[in-house]
Structure formats: structure tokens, C-alpha cells
Design a binder for these strands. Structure first.
Length: 355
DNA sequence: AAAGCGGGGGC
DNA sequence: GCCCCAGCTTT
């Protein structure tokens, strides 16, 4: 038996029961693939269920306000995915009359759909014989054939794409592709792989040479950036203020409390004498009646030290629209999509009975 | 070709 | 603490 036959047989016996494997409409496949980009299945599962329930087809998604889509996405990370999902839904619903593009090349033109996702949708939903390459496939193939080329380089990706195409079963590309990924997810794990349960143990070069832990090869390390975020939870009776993030920084399109950022850790007296503080409050009286709470928030490329100040004011911030601030009652807070760290602070306030 | 983009879980 | 997860977009 060839590799493709072996993994197909294994897949039919051992595959997980996942919701997107039931209804194979391109819409369902698409939603699942976007959610699962750089995201573990267990983490994306409930998001997928909620998404399909609220937006059963591309029409409902296209007609939804972007802020609602982002709210549903809250906590999942990589929020560009949600914005592109919405954008592409509108393109399909309104420009393509609800017709999903049916080929790899056409899918690739859509926002948020790159080589992996185009191959996944084309092969799974339309049975087009294209091989997909994701993190699982990198790992399985690098071990199977002892590929020394780093997976995180241009040249490396090309090697793996060619290899994946070579072993593809063109008759059942959907089964083949999913079987290869499932093998990576369940057996050929990054650490402590379950080689004794692997159907390809006789085919695996790395296993034969006892070099499993040496693959896949990666070239680079990423460096971290440290930032200090001073968040101002402003309490004006039952109201507070939010700000919508824009630009190319993290959390684009999400909401947060008014923020004063600095490169170094900032003491309160420094903060309250800063220009940003003055721009918000002027010389008016503020009462900071809570010791600030500081959380460390770890992102892939950044470490954020977020300090939250609870500030009571006896006035309404004027020209707040000019500063990009929106004034909202407390009980509307849950309507806004916010970063996890903001959500955690709000939860904390609830637990302390602050509302 | 490299950097930037979240958050969580396993070890 | 480090690594990785059904990657894509921008520079």
C-alpha cells in the first residue's frame, strides 16, 4: 500500500467527529478553515458552532454589522480574519450572487484566503485535486522524508508544496488532505509523538534513524517587544468611555478603555501629569480611588504590561467625539468587542460588585 | 524575504 | 519559559 492508502484507511477508523465534517457546503468549510488558522481545533470548536448558528449562510453573514461579527470573534485573536471574513462574505453574496468560487485559483483571489485555505476549500468542498500544506503537513512530511530544509522560509515552503503534490491522491483529495492533517494532529505531535500508534511507522525515515525530535527544522526565532499600557476606566455615574482602535497595530477595530501608552513603566504621578492626561481631564478634579491593577498580557510578538486605573469623575468629558471617545452606560459594555485583557478587567469589576 | 498579527494549552 | 496551533497580509 502507498502512503495515501494507508492514511486514508487510518483516517476512516480514527478520525475525530468534528461538526464541519458533517455539512460539507463550501460556506461551512470556509468558516471552519478561517477559524482554524493558527488555532487549535478545541479552541475553535465553540466559535464555529456559534458562528454557524448565528450566520447559517453567507447571506446572513454579509448582512451583519461588522461590529457584531467582531463581537462573535472576541477572544479568538487575529482579528483581521473576522474583518476579511465579513468583506469576503459581502463579495460573494452581493457581487457573485451567492455563488462560491469553485476553483483553487479563484478562491485564492478572495481576502483572507491564502494558499492553504484555497487548497482546503477546493479539495474538501469541490474535490479539486490540489494538495494543502499546513503546520501538520510540514511536520509529517519533514519526518517522513527527513527534510532538512527549514519550513519557515520561502524555499522550504516550495519544497514541501512539491512533496505534498507528489503524494496527493488525485481521486480522493478531500480524504487525503484531511487524513494527513489528522495524522499530524493526533499522532505525529510536535513533542512526544505517538509513533507506536502511527500507521506510517514503517515508511518514516526519521523514525528509522531515531531523529524524530530533529524535525521539522525551523530557521528563525522571533523577538519580543515590551509595551506599557495604562488604561483609564473612567466612571461618570453609570457611564464610562471606550475608544475604537484603528491602524496597523494590534487589535485593529476592537474597543478599549482610554489608553495612555509609554515605553517604560509609569508611576501614577507621572501619568497624571502627562500631556495625555491633561488632554482628557484638564485641571478638573478626578478621584482615583482604587489601587491600580496590573496584568501581564503575553502575545506572540509583544509583552504588554496593562495597568488599569479606576477613576471617578464628576463631569462629562467634553468634545469627547474629537478625541475618538464614545460615552456608554456600563450595561452596554458587553455589546462591544474588546481584547481579552479588557474583558478580564471588566469581569474583575463585576466580581467586585462595581456595577 | 521578513515582520506583524492573539490567545491558549502542553510540557 | 518555550513552542505551536487546519496562515494571511503587508512591507
Amino acid at each position: 500500500m502507498g502512503i495515501s492508502e494507508i492514511i486514508a484507511k487510518w483516517y476512516h477508523e480514527k478520525k475525530r467527529d468534528l461538526p464541519w465534517r458533517k455539512a460539507e457546503t463550501p460556506y461551512h468549510i470556509w468558516i471552519s478553515e478561517i477559524i482554524l488558522q493558527q488555532t487549535r481545533v478545541v479552541q475553535g470548536l465553540e466559535y464555529y458552532n456559534r458562528f454557524i448558528e448565528k450566520y447559517p449562510s453567507v447571506i446572513e453573514l454579509a448582512n451583519a454589522p461588522l461590529d457584531d461579527v467582531l463581537k462573535l470573534w472576541q477572544g479568538l485573536g487575529y482579528y483581521t480574519r473576522a474583518r476579511n471574513l465579513h468583506l469576503t462574505a459581502q463579495k460573494i453574496a452581493f457581487e457573485l450572487k451567492g455563488q462560491f468560487p469553485r476553483t483553487y485559483q479563484e478562491l485564492l483571489k478572495l481576502k483572507g484566503i491564502g494558499p492553504y485555505t484555497a487548497a482546503a476549500i477546493a479539495s474538501i468542498a469541490f474535490k479539486e485535486p490540489v494538495a494543502l500544506v499546513d503546520g501538520n503537513v510540514f511536520r509529517v512530511l519533514s519526518r517522513l522524508f527527513c527534510i532538512q530544509m527549514p519550513v519557515d522560509t520561502k524555499a522550504g515552503k516550495q519544497i514541501f508544496e512539491k512533496l505534498a503534490a507528489d503524494i496527493l491522491d488525485p481521486v480522493k483529495p478531500d480524504i487525503h488532505n484531511q487524513a494527513l492533517m489528522e495524522l499530524g494532529a493526533l499522532i505525529c505531535l510536535p513533542k512526544n509523538p505517538a509513533c507506536s500508534n502511527c500507521p506510517l511507522i514503517r515508511n518514516c525515515k526519521a523514525h528509522a534513524e531515531k531523529k524524530i525530535e530533529l524535525f521539522p527544522v525551523k530557521s528563525g526565532k522571533i523577538k519580543q517587544r515590551i509595551r506599557y499600557y495604562n488604561y483609564l476606566f473612567i466612571r461618570d455615574r453609570d457611564y464610562t468611555y471606550l475608544h475604537k482602535r484603528t491602524g496597523k497595530d494590534i487589535w485593529n477595530s476592537l474597543y478599549e478603555f482610554p489608553l495612555i501608552e509609554s515605553d517604560v513603566s509609569m508611576k501614577f504621578h507621572k501619568l497624571s501629569s502627562s500631556q495625555e492626561w491633561f488632554a482628557l481631564f484638564g485641571d478638573r478634579k478626578t478621584q482615583v480611588d482604587r489601587y491600580p491593577k496590573t496584568y501581564k498580557h503575553q502575545l506572540t510578538h509583544q509583552i504588554l504590561y496593562c495597568t488599569f486605573y479606576y477613576i471617578e469623575v464628576g463631569f462629562t468629558l467634553d468634545s469627547s467625539t474629537d478625541k475618538g471617545l464614545i460615552r456608554i452606560p456600563f450595561n452596554h459594555l458587553s455589546r462591544y468587542a474588546v481584547p481579552r485583557i479588557i474583558e478580564k478587567y471588566i469581569d474583575n469589576l463585576h466580581q467586585e460588585g462595581m456595577f
